[in-house]
Design a protein around this nucleic acid. Structure first.
Lengths: 287, 287
DNA sequence: GCCGTGTGATACCCGAGAGGTATCACAGCG
DNA sequence: CGCTGTGATACCTCTCGGGTATCACACGGC
């Protein structure tokens, strides 16, 4: 028996997340006893203790940590399989098979490149239909992994390309975006050190999976909000140079001498082999 | 219901492989009717036709192709989860948790580098135990994917690094290895064109997943066999330069001017985060 | 035309096992 | 010492995965 049912995996992950059988069972929509039993069976079949239950709570063993990690990846892979299969079969009237790709892009970023890409690809013969899926900050990896997207535009060093295939499309410097009437806006060039602790201009903090990094700056979760706060002289931020296209009159962009370069890549799951995807990548790398 | 049980996935993959319900059922060790029913249920739940059954055999629809592809990846991921969990828990006596890594290496290749790596790593404080797993030609990717190995030494362009994280360890030229007494052995340099159709020295063909590429040369499946055939003046082959360490007196190695460079990488699944693995990679990249 | 043959689908039955409820065992705590 | 909150156990139910027997249908040979 080296089989591991998806259901068991879901159960284990719920327990490992909650570290509490009752809450995990509730989250799964079942009662607690069957869940306890299922986990025991799983441990027996694997021949491994996954959880230490010592009154006062549950904790993961080393093997449990491994299964949580690997199991998450496996579960993502199966939900991805379901999603992509459904998408492939949706419009699958025989004969009328129109390919469709879902492209994940960080919401509001890189309009210019995206426009060019979509136009160029649409002009290709036999181009598939591209659905652009706006994603939250740094959520593209997750979307590729769980099948909500087929391909994504990612930005190093913010996104990690680990586990995907990718082609680099462009590289650019970063600029500080600050209120036009602030003294620093007159500078030709700034360094990270110079902007990291300006008392009246704390760096804005972006939402990431619903939580915000610590710091003094205001919490923002979309670009418009951020633009407004900058225009009001309340905050500043750092962006890739191409952000210049959406700046307001009240904004100023000053190049940063020592900020890491930002590269834009088109990335896709390593095992993808679809014709439509190959075409899109080819188009992108010719831009 | 967007769930997909591992069992259903196994069943579908068997049918998609065999394109025949009877044989697939036999391979799965169940009877044919339950298999038919399971696939029907699967199609109904996904809301997608996966197979075209038109008397005279079964064929995959577009959606079926996608599920085959994605499902294989998902199934590999779950068997990997099981294998790695079992490994992590095997010696998991509480308190005596000794890490263990399985390193896949192409059998017989790169002894020199491997020796150095293992020695250097063993000297590290808190080093895990490394089990070296000899793998067939170009089988390392598969072993990483299905969890038989945790980390691998790979050789581009023969292995694909797609889907893994990796660090390059060395790059080298390739050499033609031929009988010392053959006229070509006296040359300073050779080109691929010159060696590709020498009538009395056809290139040897390596087994790959049990099958051999077509061609006139002899079929070999291990290095000793190959060495012997070359010594006998019956064949020749192309190898990375570091192969020089195992050459016999009867062999000659002549650099190739236009063969692709071979890079050795240490590679691991992108989601791995173990301390032991990080240590091994750090050691390797310092060599 | 008709009848064997091979295919997948259908009908029906049975038993394992997933899930429910009630309860236990035990650690902490006032 | 009982109360509370935790996971484990006991036991019941009934779904559903799997088996056997059979059907429906397309082919090929005659």
């Amino acid at each position: 028996m080296d089989t591991l049912e998806t259901r068991e995996l879901r159960y284990f992950i719920a327990v490992a997340d909650e570290l509490h059988f009752g809450r995990a069972a509730e989250r799964l929509g079942i009662a607690q006893p069957p869940l306890s039993r299922a986990i025991q069976q799983l441990e027996r079949r694997l021949g491994v203790t996954l959880l230490d239950r010592d009154r006062r709570g549950v904790s993961l063993t080393g093997a449990g940590e491994v299964l949580l990690q690997e199991g998450r990846a496996a579960l993502d892979a199966t939900t991805a399989a379901v999603r992509r299969t459904r998408r492939a079969g949706g419009a699958d009237g025989p004969g009328d098979h129109r390919d469709r790709l879902v492209l994940a892009v960080k919401a509001g970023a890189f309009h210019e490149l995206l426009d060019k890409l979509l136009d160029a690809y649409a002009a290709e013969p036999g181009a598939a239909e591209i659905e652009v899926l706006p994603s939250g900050t740094c959520e593209q990896e997750e979307m590729l992994r769980d099948g909500r997207a087929d391909v994504a535009l990612m930005h190093t060093p913010f996104n990690s390309l680990a586990g995907f295939e990718s082609v680099e499309l462009m590289t650019e410097r970063q600029v500080a975006i600050l209120p036009a009437r602030h003294p620093l806006a007159a500078r030709e060039m700034l360094s990270l050190a110079e902007i990291s602790d300006v008392p009246d201009l704390p760096l804005a903090r972006w939402a990431r999976h619903g939580t915000y990094p610590p710091g003094p700056g205001p919490e923002v979760h979309d670009q418009t909000q951020l633009a407004q706060l900058i225009a009001l002289g309340r905050t500043m931020t750092v962006f890739p140079e191409s952000a210049r296209t959406w700046l307001w009159d009240e904004h100023a962009a000053v190049p940063l001498s020592d900020a890491p370069l930002v590269s834009t890549h088109i990335a896709w799951p390593a095992h993808s082999r679809s014709r439509a995807l190959a075409g899109l990548v080819r188009t992108a790398s010719r831009l």
